[in-house]
Structure formats: C-alpha cells, structure tokens
C-alpha cells in the first residue's frame, strides 16, 4: 500500500533543481504521482505527491532534500496525506475564468478573492502579472456551488467599479473553444 506524502519545495531557481529533487525521491524508492512547478522572478517552487514504502518518514524525505545544493536554503515542507491519492476531487463541471485588469494598487487580489469567498466560489488557479502600472489577474473558478451566474455577474460588476478594475467573467469552455484544436 505504502505511504502517500505531499511535498513542497521553494528555492532560488537554477538548472538541475528538478533532477536533484526527483533524484532524492528516487533514492528513497518513492513513486512520483502528481507534480506542479513554477518559476516566478527567478524563484522556483514545486509541489509534489509521491508514494513511499511504510518505513520512510516525512523527516527522511526532508533530510534527503536538505543535501540538495541551492544558492538560498531549500525551504521544504513534507506531510503525510490524509486523503488517498485516488480520492482526488473531480474537476468541477462549471469552471469559469475571471480576468481583472486595472491600475496597480495594494489589496486588489484580496478584494477579488474575498468576493469569491463571499459568493461560495472556490479559486482553482490564480495567476497575476504586473506590467508597468497595469495589474492583471486571471482566475480559474469553481462555480459548482453558484446558483445564479447572472447574480454573480451583477455583484461582480459593482465590485469591479469600486475597485477600479475591468473584469470579464466567461465560462472556461469559451476559452477552450477558441484556443484549442479539439472541441470537447
């Protein structure tokens, strides 16, 4: 059966860092499942899920990672998973993409994320960029608990006016339809 663990790693980016981390997991005879990595302003972060033999502890994994060389210290968190891998929540059917653009000021992401929370919307993915003084947020949202998209649209419109943002809320299918060759 084995032990399922979730690991998070953050450090200054350099070539070979993914090879080093996955090498450490391989040395411990871990079986890698899902992995997601991203680089932002020269900093590297990765979240991984892997299955280990019962004798491996989270401390062993963290110790194996600590030998990996890095310009900054490798920030590592390792936890044993409470839900089994196969029981992952299904991707919701009603996924919307929200884009919000406007002049940069502090609190914009908080404002939009608070709006989502207050309306029962879960944020599945969020990416933001700052270009000049223009701030752009792109959020992938789970609308499965939303009863009326229309009601969300109108309250979002007033929230956007207050925050000085231009927002567009569209179903994810539209973006897939216009950007991908295959249409469901």
């Amino acid at each position: 059966m084995g032990k399922e663990m979730v690991m998070s790693v953050m450090s200054k980016d350099r070539p070979g860092i993914v090879a080093d981390i996955t090498g450490a997991i391989y040395q411990l005879q871990g079986d890698l499942a899902d992995l997601n990595q991203s680089v932002l302003c020269d900093y590297f972060t990765m979240i991984l899920v892997a299955t280990f033999d019962d004798w491996v502890t989270p401390e062993d994994v963290a110790a194996a990672f600590s030998h990996i060389p890095s310009e900054t210290r490798l920030e590592v968190v390792v936890k044993e998973m409470t839900t089994p891998l196969g029981a992952k929540a299904k991707k919701p059917q009603d996924t919307y993409v929200l884009t919000a653009q406007g002049k940069n000021k502090s609190g914009l992401v908080h404002r939009i994320s608070l709006f989502c929370f207050q309306h029962g919307i879960n944020i599945l993915d969020l990416a933001t960029t700052l270009k000049g003084d223009q701030y752009t947020m792109i959020l992938q949202l789970d609308f499965s608990r939303v009863e009326s998209v229309d009601a969300i649209r109108s309250s979002l419109a007033s929230c956007a006016v207050e925050a000085g943002l231009t927002v567009v809320l569209q179903h994810e299918d539209i973006f897939k339809a216009v950007s991908e060759i295959t249409l469901f």
């Binding site: 993409v97 960029t129 950007s179």
Partner: peptide, 16 residues
C-alpha cells in the same frame, strides 16, 4: 490551465 496570453486575447475579442 489555459495559457494567459490566449485568455487575454479571447477576453479582448469578447470585450472590445
């Protein structure tokens, strides 16, 4: 996840 530039191009098409 869809690419950000694709998303923004589509938003422009819808909006403008």
């Amino acid at each position: 996840m869809l690419r950000s530039d694709h998303i923004l191009a589509t938003v422009e098409m819808i909006q403008k």
